[in-house]
Simulated scan of single mutants.
Amino acid sequence: MADRTDPVSFPIALQHEHRLVFTRDVFGAGNDTLAQVLTPREPGENVRALVFWDAGLEAGFPRFGEKIAGWFASRTDHVRLAATPVAVPGGEAVKNDFRQLEGVWSAINAAGLCRHSYVIAVGGGAVLDMVGFGAATAHRGIPLVRLPTTSLSQGDGGVGVKNGINFFGKKNWLGAFNVPHAIVNDLAFLHALPPRDRRAGLIEAVKVALIRDAAFFEFIAERVDALAVFAPEPYEAVIRASARQHMEHIATAGDPFERGSARPLDFGHWAAHKLEQLSEFRVSHGEAVAVGMAIDLIYSRRVGLLPEPIAERILDVIQRLGFQLFEPIKQIRGPSGRQDMLDGLEEFREHLGGRLTIPMIRAPGVRLDIHEMDGPIVKAAFDELRARYA
């Protein structure tokens, strides 16, 4: 027999399926897309589900909670609601209030959900993040179905495997990786959004195009004026492609649970996360990412990583899509904000772990990672941004 001090190890192999389905009017009487997604865990089981939905949807879709309940009521032979659909506040504030997370846990407990049940989260990225973390931590993980309702969540955040809430004044300090059972993108939600929210998803599409796919960036650039007014056909095409690009990277790039230091999908995000915090989240995530990308593009040009004509063309596309590249910074309290923005670098490294790794580009589709940023050059990029766009 082996000595009792010898180490013992066994590999654990896990297989995940990352699934996305597109539809329209998911809770329409004749739409069975969600029913097809809510599969029983064992043969013969009747599926139980609890729905959390973004209360902000009521403005664009009156009596939305009743519509959800009615859809389930007509399908009780297959799936049943474990309790009345639960409305939760939308927007980043829901991730800053721990009581909201406790409310999700309480609702799951009161409904008697188990790991053969489903939690369904309907809403923007903040609601998906908060409810997703509640589902991931209740009973060590209840299967989650995401129904993103904003352009940002349909094209990026809602199709990922991360969730979390803000804590200690830091974005997503609490969270978990949890591959959702499925994601359902209902394109009808997009056209009911106010312009600010429709625009937000476009910047993440630009981001993923720049780090992964030059042809996708050209697709956006060639249609920039139509996208700026949200022409339905190109707009939906860009959101669809953005979702696919983000999912493909997560599933195939070799690090879905972010054990390494590189985070290509966080291009422009080190500054964006700090800008959101310093503005007390008056600046939306999409607006902050546009500013953060502009800072990194100017920085790259200044240190010789990115040729000036390419940098200028990308900045022009971002502006023509309708993003302000300095105006959001005015929402930072205090006289400057420059030094506070630089603090975001260390917070970014701490959040990701390991060596500081900042994604940059040499051209659309040509990415590289850098491991340090020169503080005075970052400040110079910040000042240039102000001089050019203030």
Rank of each mutant, 00 (worst) to 15 (best):
D6E: 14
D6M: 12
P7E: 08
F10Q: 12
P11K: 05
A13G: 09
H18I: 06
V21D: 15
T23C: 13
T23G: 04
D25A: 04
T33H: 05
L34D: 10
L34M: 08
V37E: 09
L38N: 03
R41P: 05
R48W: 01
R48S: 07
A55T: 10
I68Y: 02
A69C: 05
G70N: 11
R75E: 12
V79R: 01
L81Q: 03
V86I: 14
A87R: 02
G91F: 02
V94F: 00
R99Q: 11
Q100C: 10
V104E: 12
N109I: 09
A111I: 00
R115Y: 10
H116Q: 15
H116S: 11
V119Y: 11
A121S: 15
A126T: 11
D129G: 04
V131P: 08
F133H: 07
A136E: 12
R140H: 12
V145T: 11
P148N: 04
S151R: 01
S151T: 15
L152P: 11
L152Q: 13
Q154A: 11
G155P: 01
G160M: 07
F168C: 09
N172Q: 12
V179D: 05
V179W: 06
I183P: 03
N185R: 07
N185M: 08
A192P: 07
A192H: 15
P194W: 01
R196E: 11
D197P: 00
R198T: 04
R199P: 00
G201D: 03
E204W: 02
A205P: 00
K207H: 01
E222I: 00
R223I: 00
R223M: 01
D225S: 08
E236F: 02
V238I: 13
A241T: 13
R244K: 14
A253C: 08
D255Q: 13
F257E: 11
R259A: 11
R259Y: 14
A262E: 15
R263N: 08
L265P: 02
G268T: 06
H269F: 03
Q277W: 06
H285Q: 06
G286S: 07
Y299K: 02
I310W: 04
D316K: 13
R320V: 09
L321N: 09
L325G: 04
G334H: 14
P335W: 09
D340N: 10
F348M: 13
R355T: 15
P359C: 06
M360W: 00
I361S: 05
R362Q: 14
R362H: 14
R367G: 09
D369G: 05
I370D: 02
D374K: 07
D374E: 14
P376H: 10
A380V: 05
A387E: 15
Y389L: 04
Y389T: 03
A390P: 03
